[in-house]
Amino acid sequence: MIDLKESDPQFKWEIVKKEGGEGLLKCFGCSDCAASCPVRYFNENYNPRKIIRLTLLGLKDRVLTSPFLWFCAHCHACTERCPQGIRVAELINAIKNYAVDQGYCPEGYKMQLDLLLKMGRLYEVEDFDLKKRQRLGLPAIDKTIPDVARILEYTGILKVLQK
């Protein structure tokens, strides 16, 4: 049962303020997003409409602690169909960003962040790779791009790693 005593009336307004979250309040619950969603097609535990609904109801803890929030593949099938013009994938992403900010960041993303901090790219470029590229006549690439670390420090996102 939904207990609205747990509802945080500010939650939806905080999402609206975030990049991509601006369309949240337009939702009238037609469920076209859920019917379009390829992830939902194969895993009924994930439902974008339900995430949006719980967010509108202010059920912050339920939304942020749900493992299914992270199932969105960001494929934009929903964005194309939403009759209210909500950028649904961006909206779900805004909720993910909010969750990270509140300390709910999946380990996988932390690992990726760590890699970007160290190298500026997701895959380590080993000598073996460079030799292989040379053999194929492909140009050499940088092993690390330190500028990325500068950006990570600037936006303050590294705090995620400390939590």
């Binding site: 960003n97 970007l116 936006t155």
Partner: peptide, 18 residues
């Protein structure tokens, strides 16, 4: 560098700056 996409779910602004 990396395009930034892996960071989008973490923080869209960071991803966009990268």
């Amino acid at each position: 560098s990396c395009c930034g996409f892996p960071m989008k779910a973490v923080d869209a602004e960071t991803a966009l700056l990268i």
